[in-house]
Nucleic acid binder design. Structure first.
Length: 193
DNA sequence: CAGCAGATTGACT
DNA sequence: GTCAATCTGCTGC
């Protein structure tokens, strides 16, 4: 079942980061469908979160979409190379977002392997999964209830005991906020890296 | 405008 | 373990 507008708008980033584990992320790029099960996420909790691009109410051309109503994609270029995909949640002017950090391939593995141009299929990092799914910065602002990028509940159950919670990765610049337990992942044995 | 750091990755010593 | 890839935004001259 495809996740609808209500799903995105009634959850803050922390709740959404938890609930998105086990959901499937689909893309249809030029009619070619690929998908993966979300295995790792991070919450970025709005203007008060020093690790967020929206920290202190910062608004730039890059992060403007974070301030939109939930249910759209925030895709930005990291280190000038990697396209990172976020799910914008909550309401207008509440810049909450969930970074998708890892997936397990579900559909279209051959296409994903070809996009990656690597001997083995790697989708265990935020930059590698977007490449495998064909997500690029021109998908920024994409409506997640549309036909190009969307999420589905495909019935995967994630037991609470299998969820590992810890600090976010690569946000040391955020001071005390770097230690907040905003990272969620399905037990490491399940991950492909 | 120059310099630097960043929600990263892969190649190489 | 080190380092380069290279776009955006922030700081300081």
């Amino acid at each position: 079942m495809k996740l609808d507008t209500t799903f995105y708008r009634e959850r803050n980033a922390l709740v959404a980061a938890h609930d998105l584990l086990g959901m499937a992320l689909f893309t249809s790029i030029h009619g070619v469908r690929t998908a993966g099960i979300i295995t790792e996420t991070e919450a970025y909790m709005g203007e008060g979160d020093k690790a967020s691009h929206a920290s202190g109410g910062r608004r730039t051309r890059r992060n403007e979409v974070m301030y939109a109503d939930g249910g759209v994609a925030y895709v930005y270029l990291c280190y000038g190379i990697h396209h990172l995909f976020n799910v914008v949640v909550l309401g207008k002017d509440q810049p909450h977002a969930v970074l998708i950090r890892a997936i397990n391939p579900l559909h279209g593995a051959e296409v994903m392997l070809d996009r990656r141009r690597s001997p083995t299929l790697t989708t265990g990092g935020p930059g590698t999964l977007t490449q495998a799914l064909g997500i690029r910065t021109d998908h920024n602002r994409e409506d997640l209830t549309g036909g190009r990028i969307w999420l589905e509940d495909v019935g995967v159950k994630v037991p609470e005991k299998k969820i590992v919670i810890g600090p976010r990765v690569g946000v040391d610049y955020a001071g005390e906020d770097a230690r907040l337990p905003y990272r969620f992942r399905i037990a490491p044995s399940q991950l492909i890296r």
